[in-house]
Amino acid sequence: MNSLSLVLRTTGYFLLPLLLIFSVFLLLRGHDEPGGGFIAGLVAAAAVCLHLFFTDVPSTRKLIHIDPRDLLGWGLFLATVSGVPGVFMGDAFFTSQWVELTLPILGETKLGTPLLFDIGVYAVVIGTVLTIVLSLAEAEE
């Protein structure tokens, strides 16, 4: 795809990092408040698609570095594995396990398996959307 619109290209380079940061914010926010892995993944995937609009497939592939299929695999793996710790604690599959930590910068932090699951979902969503979009875009070119 050739980049016809100067406006799109200029704003795109500004928006891309903002959207990616916003997606991480959504990802980390979403256990007790609106947000979560799925929406965050869609935002991140949309950001990459925006990049695809004003450049071409090879440079977008270069931008994301890893193959989307790897993301898909690792995400699915992480999401499935996040159900396992519950079993070792004597609960049913996918029972949430929480650890409370005091980290240097963040202060009191609760970390748990739902976060792991959300990160997995995040990777699966990005992986799926980009696999489909990139293969469609490659077929077009």
């Binding site: 299929r69 790897d70 695999g73 690792w74 699915l76 793996f77 499935t80 594995v81 159900g83 599959f93």
Partner: peptide, 18 residues
Amino acid sequence: ALPIVIPLLAGALSLIYW
């Protein structure tokens, strides 16, 4: 849960090693 989890894990692993 194993009959669901085993194929899911196997699927994820074979995606990782595609």
